[in-house]
Simulated scan of single mutants.
Amino acid sequence: MRFELTEDQRDFATALDGLIAGSDPVGAARAWAADDTAPGLALWKRVADQGVNALVVPEEAGGVGASAVELVVAFEVLGRHAVPGPWVESAAYLATALDGEDREAVAAGAVATVAAPPHAPYALDADVAERVYLAGAGGLAEATPSDRATSVDGTRRLFRVEPGTTRVPGDRAEEAFDLAALATAAHLLGAGERVLADSVTYVKQRRQFGREIGSYQAIKHHLADVRIALDFARPLVAGAALAADGPAADRARAVSAAKVACSDAAYLASRTGLQVHGAIGYTQEFDLSLWITRIRALVGAWGTPAYHRARVLDSLLAAGGEG
């Protein structure tokens, strides 16, 4: 089966890519990691003005009413540019889980975040979020940030939160979790593509023993393995996006398969990128580090690979038992 984007979807991706690329996303990410959030929040507004926060929000709730396909298109672009901020939490989880005025605020571009234990125990960027929530067995509640936790990715500013007494309307926890995991998978795919592209560029420039290192078969093979892994992960993301509106069991299985494949492919891209760059790849000053640490953090975000593999297995066993 072939998954092809429509012309409108390709145009959306191109426009979003151009907007972000021209807004110094690397500078915004570095400033964000240093707790200077002004450039990142300015970029947030520009991206939100393109309707990214409102993609999966129904039109009657102030959203675009698009499908999950448009969401993964947007998140691949966000991952390609290492855009900082609680995008998964706002545009995927909360845009799905909330109702009423809270959902409308997210669709309008409010910076919102959520902690959803056990798979997302911390609220990303809760100190700058206009709205902070805690998801639990009883649904969603307003929350306030407390102490800060440490992430391997400096741009992921994690906070523990304390629940308030105010409950908020909305209780689509399973659907919201799946959409957050799918958005994270697409983000990983974009980050992996960026690392591969930068690595290919580097090996064409770096010379050893009188020739570009990219001319050596061993390096070609490593980069080809990354290309294959990313190409195999991409249709799983597209398939999961198409399954987002289907039966819950099918959606969960497809999303978990996509998250595992994208985690593995992006992690392979980061390891290979680090190897071919050599010593410079280890330096924090080199931009590659933004994507390497982002990938490492997102591999375990919104469900670890072990959790998602187990979910795929359980789903297949249950389907086999029914047959």
Rank of each mutant, 00 (worst) to 15 (best):
T184V: 10
V237F: 10
G190D: 10
E193M: 09
L196E: 09
A181D: 04
G164F: 05
I228W: 08
R206N: 12
A181T: 14
I219K: 01
A254E: 13
P145T: 12
Y202R: 07
G246Y: 01
A149D: 10
A197E: 15
H221V: 15
G278P: 03
A265S: 15
E212L: 01
A243F: 03
A258M: 05
G192D: 11
R271Y: 12
D264K: 03
V226C: 02
L274H: 09
S199P: 09
E212R: 07
L188T: 11
K220A: 10
Q208D: 13
P145F: 09
A240C: 08
I213D: 04
V195N: 00
T272F: 07
Q275L: 14
T150Q: 13
F209V: 15
A254K: 02
S263R: 08
P247L: 13
V203H: 07
F177K: 00
Q275S: 11
G239R: 08
A254G: 13
L236R: 12
V161T: 05
D147Q: 12
R160G: 04
T155P: 00
G278E: 11
Q205L: 14
V260H: 02
F177A: 08
K259S: 10
R253E: 13
A265L: 07
A241S: 08
F232A: 15
A279P: 09
G164P: 02
G246M: 03
V161P: 01
A191Q: 07
L242A: 05
A183C: 08
D198M: 13
D245R: 06
H222W: 08
A229Y: 06
A218R: 12
L189G: 00
H277N: 07
R227S: 14
G164H: 01
V195A: 03
A240N: 06
L189V: 02
S256Q: 06
A224R: 06
A181M: 01
D147I: 06
G273L: 04
G210C: 06
P235N: 02
V255M: 03
F232E: 15
L158K: 08
L188S: 11
R251G: 05
Q217E: 14
A279M: 09
V237T: 05
H277R: 01
A266F: 11
I219V: 15
T155E: 07
H187R: 14
L223T: 11
F209H: 08
L223R: 00
T166V: 15
D153S: 12
T165P: 01
G239Y: 11
Y216N: 09
K220R: 13
V276R: 01
V276T: 05
S215A: 13
Q275R: 10
I213M: 09
L274D: 12
L182F: 04
I219F: 00
A181V: 03
D250S: 12
A233S: 13
D231Y: 03
L158N: 06
A183W: 00
A238R: 06
F232N: 15
D171H: 10
G192V: 05
R234A: 14
A265E: 06
Q217N: 04
R227W: 11
P169L: 14
G190E: 05
L236W: 08
F177L: 10
H222R: 14
K259W: 03
A173I: 11
